[in-house]
Amino acid sequence: MAILIKRPAAIKPSEITDRALYFDRRRFLRASLLSTVGLPALLARPRIASAALTVHELPPGPFSTHETMTPYQDTTTYNNFYEFGTSKGDPSRYAGAMSTNPWTVAVTGACRHPAIYHLEDFIRPYALQERIYRHRCVEAWSMVIPWIGVPLRDILRRCVPSGDARYVEFTTLYDPREMPGQRSDILQWPYLEGLRMDEAMHPLTLLAVGMYGRVLPNQNGAPLRLVVPWKYGFKSIKSIVKIRLVKNQPVTTWMRAVPQRYGFYSNVNPAVDRVPWSQRYERRIGDFFKRKTLMFNGYGPEVAHLYAGMNLAKYY
């Protein structure tokens, strides 16, 4: 996948410093306890399960936040990717077995140019961008992640959606041999997600192939995943094999599993309380104190107009 990455014209020294920062594993417990107790960092850490192909620096693209990025170590070992198991460490332990090369993506449904692509051909026409986004999990924790990808709108435009295309449906790979979690039926496989057309066409919505200047690690949804930063993390479907333009609202995996808790929209919303725990606050990974959760995860200025006049307590 080395062909995906373009070399930027110049790398500012300030960005290199930044880069060093997010690989720095700071964590409050360790920081506070180690400095007082003075123990060496005994790092019995799981290996990062990916071909750690480094890609070159990209300048931060539009919409990027300046907040401190979450250390790479944390974003790659604390994952919800139930295809590999339900505990946070399962994806980094088991996702290495998933083969992502070759990888094909089918674009089908209500469009003029349906096609099946090799991933390289699928991405090659576009310039990759870096987007540093907040990521808010429905479990009330959050991260700041520098993604690398392509706006979904550019890809959708190329297939020329027809008038019937009102929603976009995404499907994850189904392969129980490589995805041990799919042998259990806690969710209905394959994982399915969806966006309304205007959400999919919003410039914030990204199809990511990398993060932190590298190719996506498997546990983070390699080789192709969605990133919708104003929605709870489970909307950002991983390891996508199919993108289908449809007329009717898809029934997503989490809606099907627990409809009274998880709805189609699943916008980050501190006022809507449908899970057992509070959505009003969140813990940014690495922080001690919780912070207030922002409406639309702080992307309100960009996306609130999509939901003008909608009762978000009803369309949760």
């Binding site: 180690l34 107790v37 924790w141 813990r283």
Partner: peptide, 13 residues
Amino acid sequence: RTLTGTLGANPIS
């Protein structure tokens, strides 16, 4: 695990 900082990304949880 607490003293060695090996409780993972979300030690409190």
